[in-house]
Design a protein around this nucleic acid. Structure first.
Lengths: 259, 259
DNA sequence: ACCTATTTGTGCGTATGTATT
DNA sequence: CAATACATACGCACAAATAGG
């Protein structure tokens, strides 16, 4: 399992396009940080049980100095994942489980949260009237340039930020959607007030990437946190798209469930 | 959009448990790398169109020196995302799209790939006979300690590594599953040889995290790459669990699609 | 009580990498 | 390109707590 850790050595040994010579460069991530990241993911996967191997052993396995391992452990201790005890060893502090977020044809954020006894909340970060660009017009099946309400939200459960989302609605079909959401705090309810009693999720696409700087600030997470990005289309009972929504979930706080 | 980038400043100003003082420490990620990461994600989200703002403007916006921005741009150029042209500006080189990976009740890896004209392949990384632990016995509805075949695979499309996966099967019900997979290179076919003509996906749970060191080596990706982790249960027509599979997709090479 | 091996905690000197001026 | 300040990584040595014989 721990046989080798060659990945700590620089992988970028050659430069391709000749403009800049990368051969002597690192990749911008320090060794202690890589050790910390790897330990974190091993702990998350249950690959390291309750007691962490001694610093000297880890140092040998990762091919780094013991100080470097110590700094990685210190960082993880600061995150609350590890607890080092002098003379005894270093122990794993089991993380609170991720919030389970079921996604189906009729999943609603608020209902999910209350089902897990979490208090849901959301606040409007920004809203604007914008023209449809290529990508969004294709998803919403509207003309390029058609007027859309863009709604930027921050979703919170039990006072902990969970996700940032950006939604687009047809401004012609739902002229007052922003006001309705501002009053009710619920997309489902805002759509109902606009005359749409039911809708369903047609498609959900999932990717993951690093958080952007302004999302990081709003989500109050580390600047290099990982987000699960969901791009989804909701449709009315006739199959007409009514919402395109891009949600950025904090990956270490949620787990998406399908099926 | 670019109003502030406070996140570049260290957020870790206080230490909680008193063992180590973090106040003078960096967070292990260099500034040029953070600028590069943020630019990359903005480009991916379409937030930066075709032409990148001038270096001096970026330096001011990120609150860093122009040298630092130049290094970030050089790094992205090396990745093939940007192309700087003297006297003209810096331009975005649109990335090849992520491979779309539909997940449904009857999704099969090979079929997905050929549908996108990619040549699928897989190789066995490791296999072993292991006892079921708590987590897996719950998913497979078997006794703790029951004998399971554990199969570690690497999936490849057009010679590019796409995912690493670990599957567990009941060794009692599918005694020859490993050999069958080794011969056919297909889970579907291997199960058919074991007498199971049909199965379906019952549940898929998605999270994201940093790649572990040994996965990074096999996937030949950066040591700090992001992976989409899918934990799923497949069941036979009677609803009996037959496979628990944990797949680690490289997040920048795939997009998962549900519904 | 003693000794020993193991493990974490600490200090210091040096070299290299990073970021700014 | 040079000078500067700071962060990172290493090597060595030793102190302090723990556990077992």
């Amino acid at each position: 399992m721990f046989d080798s850790y060659l990945a700590l050595r620089d992988t970028r040994m050659t430069s391709r396009n000749g403009t800049v010579d990368f051969s002597s460069w690192g990749d911008g991530v320090s060794r202690w940080r890589r050790v910390a990241d790897d330990l974190r993911s091993r702990i998350a996967e249950g690959d390291i049980s309750e007691i962490v191997p001694p610093e000297t052993v880890l140092a040998a396995r990762y091919g780094v100095n013991r100080h470097t391992v110590r700094r990685a452990i210190a960082s993880l201790s600061d995150e609350g994942i590890l607890k080092a005890e002098r003379g005894k060893g270093t122990f794993v502090h089991r993380r609170p489980r991720r919030v389970l977020y079921p996604i189906g044809a009729r999943t609603r954020f608020s209902e999910n949260m209350v089902r897990q006894s979490l208090e849901p909340a959301g606040r409007i970060v920004r809203s604007a009237l914008v023209p449809a660009d290529d990508a969004i017009s294709a998803r919403l099946k509207c003309a390029v340039g058609a007027p859309l309400h863009r709604l930027d939200r921050l979703s919170v459960a039990d006072r902990v930020p969970m996700s940032r989302s950006t939604s687009w609605f047809s401004a012609e079909r739902f002229p007052d959607i922003i006001e309705a959401y501002a009053e009710t705090g619920s997309i489902t309810e805002a759509l109902r007030r606009s005359g749409l009693s039911d809708y369903r999720r047609a498609e959900t696409r999932i990717t993951a990437e690093r958080v952007s700087a302004d999302d990081a600030e709003l989500l109050s997470c580390a600047p290099d946190a990982i987000i699960l990005t969901s791009r989804a289309v909701d449709v009315d009972p006739e199959g007409q798209p009514i919402q395109f929504v891009c949600t950025r979930f904090l990956a270490d706080r949620v787990e998406l469930m399908f099926g």
